[in-house]
C-alpha cells in the first residue's frame, strides 16, 4: 500500500521550547497506528501538526502525495479528520446539528447544506449507533456518547485518514470497549486509516498494526506490537520498567504498570 501520511525530519518549536524534534514517521493506507509515550512527549502536537491546527514547524509533512503546505485547509480536511478528547463538552447543539458541521469542508462559500449533506449525517449516525441520540444536546451526553458524536462528526467529513487524541480517556471500561469496537469497524469495514494517541499500552499492542513511541519530542520506537512488548523498548519510551506476562488465554504479552 502507498504511503498516505508522512513526516520527514519534522520539528515543531513553541518559542524556545522544542515540542517535536526531527520526527520521521510513515503511515500506509489502511493501517491502524497507535502513538504512545509519556505526558508531554509531543503525541497530540504531532496530530495537530498534521491537521494544521498548529501552523508552521520545520521539515516536511506529507499528506497523500503532496506536502501539507500545498493544501488549502478545506482540501486538507477532506483527507484528514481530527477527533479531539471528549472531556465534558458543553456544546448546546443537538447531536445532529453538531455532526452536520463536519460537512464544512464540502460546502461552498455560501454555506448552504444540501440534501446530500443531511443524508451523510444520517448514514454516520447509524454507523456510530447515535441515531437514537440525534435530538439530544451534546452537553447532556455521557463521555462515551460524546466521543461517538465526535467520531461521527469526523466521519461525515468523508476523509480516509482519521487522527484521534486519546479516544478512550475518561471512559469507563464498558464505554472504552464500545469505542474500540466502533474504531475496529471503521478500520475493517470502511477502510479508514486510523492514528490514535493512547496511554493504554495493552490496547495499543492488541488493536493496532503499528506503534510509534515518542519521548520528549523524539521518536524512540517504530514497530509492530510484538516488537513493542519487550522490557527494553518500554523502558526506553517511558523511562521505567514494567512487569510483562503472557495473557492466560492467548499467550500474548501483556504489561502491568
Amino acid at each position: 500500500m502507498e504511503i498516505i501520511l508522512a513526516a520527514r525530519g519534522f520539528s515543531y518549536r513553541l518559542g524556545k521550547k522544542t515540542l517535536l524534534e526531527e520526527i520521521d514517521f510513515e503511515v500506509r493506507a489502511g493501517e491502524r497506528w497507535a502513538i504512545i509515550g509519556p505526558n508531554g512527549a509531543g503525541k497530540s502536537t504531532l496530530l495537530k501538526a498534521f491537521c494544521r491546527i498548529l501552523v508552521s514547524g520545520e521539515g516536511l509533512l506529507l499528506v497523500g502525495d503532496k506536502p501539507l503546505s500545498q493544501y488549502k485547509q478545506k482540501a486538507l480536511a477532506r483527507w484528514i479528520s481530527y477527533v479531539p478528547q471528549a472531556s465534558g463538552r458543553d456544546d448546546l447543539f443537538t447531536v445532529r446539528e453538531f455532526v452536520v458541521m463536519g460537512r464544512y469542508a464540502h460546502l461552498s462559500a455560501f454555506s448552504v447544506l444540501t440534501r446530500r449533506d443531511w443524508e451523510e449525517v444520517e448514514r454516520v449516525l447509524d454507523l456510530t449507533g447515535m441515531t437514537d441520540f440525534a435530538h439530544r444536546r451534546v452537553s447532556t451526553l455521557s463521555g462515551g456518547e460524546q466521543q461517538k458524536t465526535l467520531i461521527a462528526a469526523a466521519l461525515v467529513q468523508g476523509a480516509n485518514i482519521m487522527l484521534l487524541d486519546e479516544p478512550t480517556a475518561f471512559l469507563d471500561p464498558y464505554q472504552q470497549s464500545q469505542i474500540h469496537d466502533l474504531l475496529e469497524t471503521l478500520h475493517q469495514d470502511a477502510g479508514v486509516t486510523l492514528v490514535e494517541v493512547t496511554h493504554d499500552i495493552n490496547q495499543a499492542a492488541l488493536g493496532h498494526d503499528r506503534i510509534l513511541g515518542l519521548r520528549a519530542g523524539r521518536v524512540v520506537f517504530t514497530g509492530s506490537p510484538e516488537e513493542l512488548m519487550t522490557g527494553g523498548v518500554l523502558r526506553e519510551i517511558y523511562g521505567r520498567s514494567f512487569k510483562l506476562f503472557p495473557h492466560p488465554e492467548t499467550g500474548r504479552t501483556m504489561v502491568l504498570p
Binding site: 479528520s81 479531539p84 458541521m101 464544512y104 454555506s111 462528526a153
Partner: peptide
C-alpha cells in the same frame, strides 16, 4: 450572514474548527 456556519464551528472550539477545514485565523 454568509459565515453563519463558521460561527457555529467557532463555538465548538478553534481546534475542532481547524480540523473541520476552517482557516481559523
Amino acid at each position: 450572514f454568509l459565515k453563519r456556519l463558521d460561527l457555529n464551528l467557532l463555538t465548538t472550539g478553534e481546534d475542532l474548527a481547524a480540523g473541520r477545514g476552517m482557516n481559523v485565523n
